[in-house]
Design a protein around this nucleic acid. Structure first.
Lengths: 248, 248
DNA sequence: CCTTGAATATCGGTG
DNA sequence: CACCGATGTTCAAGG
């Protein structure tokens, strides 16, 4: 690991060139960014943090916002050189053809380090977890509901859950974690229509299940003869998994 | 701006506490992360880069991937303290209620800096630019096409472009920049049906316009009596805007 | 390799 | 404040 505070461009280049394989590069300073690829972007001089990761990712972060203002994805090739007295980071990739050029005219920090990180992210509360919970406890939606199948494939895409109600009427459940948009309605409608066409059953119900359903979506569902059920779940990571990772 | 290489947790805390308002914090070291909010996450010890931005954003970056492995969005409140000999970053926000705790047991770098960045991002080649190009040059889609209205609101959502062809038949254009999925077909279908119901015109055409349209989507459009038009545009940022920013 | 859909999506615009 | 749609979305899983 090496680090220099307020290096000259030449000093920064020397540090970057001394990096070991698989190291992460960290630069802070006044830079200008150009990008050309799927779109085209230009960002005038300003002070930012730039990271070049082990997998080739390049990130340009401003002092606001979660997202990088400019970036290159994993698999990008990078090179460094001095041009017109400025430190240049050139990054390109082939599929799709995209290139980015960062010019530093002043550096506050230049560093590299090899970072070891074997831990796996434990995460609960995703859409899949919400669907699992419904399969486990179908009465959350409705008394007497029986789960028949999970993730049924149809011509229209994938059904989340296929069930039957207490009167044995087929029920198609679409599970969303985030507030669904109109697309979810079209999707559910397509599933239901597809099922009707294929099975020729007298009745099929379609229920959109989500923690929160916007009024507009509720209206659309009613108009189309579909249903919705707002429900919420609490999820907790098992303590033992945390401890295992803690002890790693 | 202050920076320490391989500080103790106490030294790092001292540096963080000496920060000026609106500064960006940068930490590199071996840490463990817990998050609880919309979902729940746990990440065992590993070496990462942590940024705390002026607007409250907190990012935990591994040495791979564009996205942060853990984060808090802008508006988050943060505090630092020592607990069990480790440097702790506690971050929380109220809407929605979410909290994150990062524990450093070893630090490679601790720094803060005030970053000045007034430059505005210049970006061209977005969906809006594609739609602008069509409004400007409707013959790209079809000879004789006349643009009537842009961004028309309907009960089913918003139409990108509303036009009429050379025979004065209404045409609804949906513009996509990225390859459209089946959702775009349902959306366009809904727009067309909505228009028919409201206007009772004999004919309405719906055209999905995108640089590239997957075969499956083409088939669906044909089945539903809708149309598509693949077209591409080249966009370039005006040189003078770049120069203005360059001189900033 | 391409396609599909989720995301603690984030982010900006609009009402 | 809530909703809605785009994103150089990114990312992971499945065919």
């Amino acid at each position: 690991m090496r680090c220099a505070v307020s290096p000259s461009c030449e000093e920064a280049l020397e540090i970057l060139n001394s990096r070991k394989p698989n190291s992460l590069l960290l630069l802070m300073g006044e830079c200008m960014v150009k990008f050309k690829g799927r779109a085209e972007a230009f960002l005038g001089y300003g002070e930012r943090v730039v990271m070049v990761k082990r997998d080739g990712s390049v990130l340009v972060h401003r002092d606001e916002g979660c997202d990088a203002v400019n970036w290159q994805p994993p698999g990008t090739k990078t090179s460094f050189f001095i041009q017109d007295g400025e430190l240049v980071l050139y990054a390109y990739r082939l599929k799709p053809p995209e290139k980015m050029k960062i010019r530093f005219r002043k550096l506050a920090l230049a560093a590299w380090a090899r970072m070891h990180d074997k831990a796996a992210l434990q995460l609960i509360g995703m859409e899949k977890d919400y669907a699992d919970r419904l399969v486990e406890h179908p009465y959350i939606i409705e008394e007497g509901l029986r789960i028949i199948k999970r993730e049924r494939k149809t011509d229209s895409g994938s059904i989340d859950i296929y069930a039957r109600d207490k009167e044995n009427v087929p029920v198609i459940l679409e599970v969303k974690r985030s507030p669904p948009g109109v697309a979810a309605v079209y999707q559910l409608e397509a599933y239901v229509n597809d099922f009707k066409r294929k099975n020729k059953e007298a009745k099929v119900r379609g229920i959109l299940c989500a923690p929160k359903i916007p009024p507009m979506v509720q209206n659309m569902l009613r108009e189309k003869g579909l249903e919705y059920k707002a429900y919420s779940c609490n999820f907790e990571l098992p303590e033992d998994e945390q401890r295992t990772l803690f002890d790693y």
